[in-house]
Design a protein around this nucleic acid. Structure first.
Length: 480
RNA sequence: GGGACCGUAGUCUAGCUUGGUCAUGAUGCUAGCCUGGGGUGCUAGAGGUCGCCGGUUCAAGUCCGGCCGGUCCCA
């Protein structure tokens, strides 16, 4: 009947439209009245909460604390580090009035908080004893997106965390950069079941103001690469203009070494794109707000009571073990409707309990990812379902890994490069290190250097653009 | 940055070319019944500044302009 309730396009036929429908119809988000802004609905927000708590725990375990920064940054402060300012200024929202009165030093809605944080840090840090200082901020950032906004991937305001740390030595700061990148990688691979490639950004693509930027990248099913998180080594680029210095053990005044890093709700976008199918979302059990939904099936009143009783019993058993279970006892919908509804919302596992099951002392399990059905006795519920969650989590990761592998190739020849890039690929190719070659290939093919992997395998072939001796191989792709 | 398209009840939509009982249908919603292992059926009911502002006209959902919002494609 009314197919409009569900997803009306196929993922591999109209990817963009599919994505838009999934985020809206699965009730993750809705459009706000202002261009480029979205509202997170509870279902979407709870996914963010799982991500947040997973990252937060890891940050705390590695000695970070949370703080809070205000959203307004005076222009005089934002403009202190000039390349940083020049990089961000085109997309800054400005507050120019308070009431009717014009504000002299207009206020930026933070595009990122380096400048504000470091102006504070310079007051707080006096001695080597004050270091390291490792503070993380859960907040939102605002960057005006004039064109082509897309929920979670490109919005004018986004939820994220930004970490800002200060260290006495460059070695320690660089260690921090890697610690964080590893936390990000683990979170994305283990919770979201998305494999990533970690490495460095090129000079052209690094964070404005950083010495270098490390990144994790993955490829989406439409062949576009997505930056999933970055961790920057700032060196003394900010500590000098912001006067973040300390007296070291030898009583010498020294500028500190800094890092900054962040991941945003863009990860939710990746989650949707990588795992979803024609029926809608598919959530990995670790981040699913509802891990299993129980659909009671009955016709007579007496069946109804018995079935619901059993359903709630099973729910209790599983909830005790910490699983997030929902019994869909809505009376106004048929089981078939509910099946489709929860499939669209990506709940990893469906449990059906009806009179036939009560008679046989078992329930029917249906996996969201494979749609495979199996039986499980009520007694075995706890372990059986725990095991199934693990299996789904692993299978989703393996499937995503296969996608990444299929879309990744080593190419040393330019004409072949152009041909492959047309199909949406992640291409590892030799590069001389010259920014001109990087720009040339961007012009010709639309592809950027997404990442120079830490574990890059050197081909030692000539640069794919200019033919000179290559310095490294780099991963090229068109990006989001 | 360049281009194409769209905006009518919660949702999807007819009507726009050729201005005039044209606000259409479905779904959803509410109530009551029926049904229930893959998007059930019946009956009744509520729900609309036709995105906003202005213009043309005796008359604008329909024509014109501006604005707001959204989608897609290319760089």
């Amino acid at each position: 009947m009314s197919k409009e309730i569900g997803i009306t396009v196929k993922k591999n036929e109209d990817f963009s439209e599919w994505y838009t429908q999934v985020v809206i119809k699965a009730q993750l988000t809705d459009y706000a009245p202002v261009k480029g802004l979205i509202v997170l609905r509870p279902y979407g927000y709870s996914i963010w909460e799982f991500l947040k708590s997973s990252i937060d725990q890891k940050l705390k375990a590695t000695g970070h604390e949370n703080g809070f920064l205000p959203v307004l940054i005076p222009e005089s402060l934002l403009s202190k580090e000039t390349t940083h300012f020049a990089g961000f200024t085109p997309e800054v929202f400005w507050v120019t009035h308070s009431g009717d009165a014009e504000i002299g030093d207009r206020l930026a809605l933070r595009p990122t908080s380096e400048t504000l944080a470091y102006s504070m840090y310079s007051k707080w840090i006096k001695s080597w004893r004050d270091l390291p200082l490792k503070i993380n901020f859960w907040n939102s950032a605002l960057r005006a997106e004039i064109k082509s906004t897309k929920p979670f991937l490109r919005t004018s305001e986004f939820l994220w965390q930004e970490g800002h740390t200060v260290h006495a030595t460059p070695e320690e700061a660089e260690g921090e950069v890697m610690t964080i990148l590893d936390i990000y990688r683990k979170t994305v691979e283990e919770e979201l079941a998305i494999p990533v490639i970690v490495g460095k950004k090129s000079e052209k693509e690094k964070f404005v103001g950083a010495v270098y930027t490390t990144t994790m990248e993955s490829i989406m099913p439409d062949g576009k690469a997505l930056q999933m998180g970055t961790s920057h080594f700032l060196g003394q680029n900010f500590s000098k203009p912001f006067d973040v210095k300390f007296l070291d053990k030898q009583n010498i005044e020294t500028f500190a070494w800094q890092t900054s890093w962040g991941v945003s709700w863009r990860l939710i976008g990746a989650l949707i794109m990588v795992h979803g199918d024609d029926k809608g979302l598919i959530l990995p059990p670790r981040v699913a707000p509802i891990q299993a939904v129980i659909i009671p099936i009955y016709s007579s009143q007496s069946d109804k009571e018995a079935v619901l009783k059993k359903a709630n019993e099973i729910k209790e058993v599983l909830a005790k073990r910490g699983f997030r279970i929902h019994v869909d006892s809505r009376d106004e919908f048929t089981p078939g409707y509910k099946f489709n509804d929860w499939e669209m919302k990506g709940v990893p596992l469906r449990i059906e309990i009806g009179p036939k099951d009560l008679a046989k002392n078992k329930m029917v399990l249906v996996r969201r990812d494979s749609l495979k059905k199996s039986d499980l006795s009520f007694e075995a519920a706890e372990d059986g379902i725990a095991h199934m969650f693990d299996e789904i989590q692993v299978d989703l990761f393996e499937k995503a890994k296969k996608l990444l592998n299929e879309r990744t190739k080593n190419i040393a020849d330019l004409s072949q490069f152009k041909k492959e890039m047309e199909t949406g690929m992640f291409l590892s190719s030799p590069w001389c290190g010259d920014q001109k070659c990087e720009e040339k290939i961007k012009e010709d093919t639309g592809a950027d250097i997404r990442v120079i992997p830490f574990d890059v395998k050197r081909s030692n072939a000539p640069c794919i653009v200019c033919g000179k001796q290559s310095k490294t191989d780099a991963m090229f792709a068109r990006g989001y």
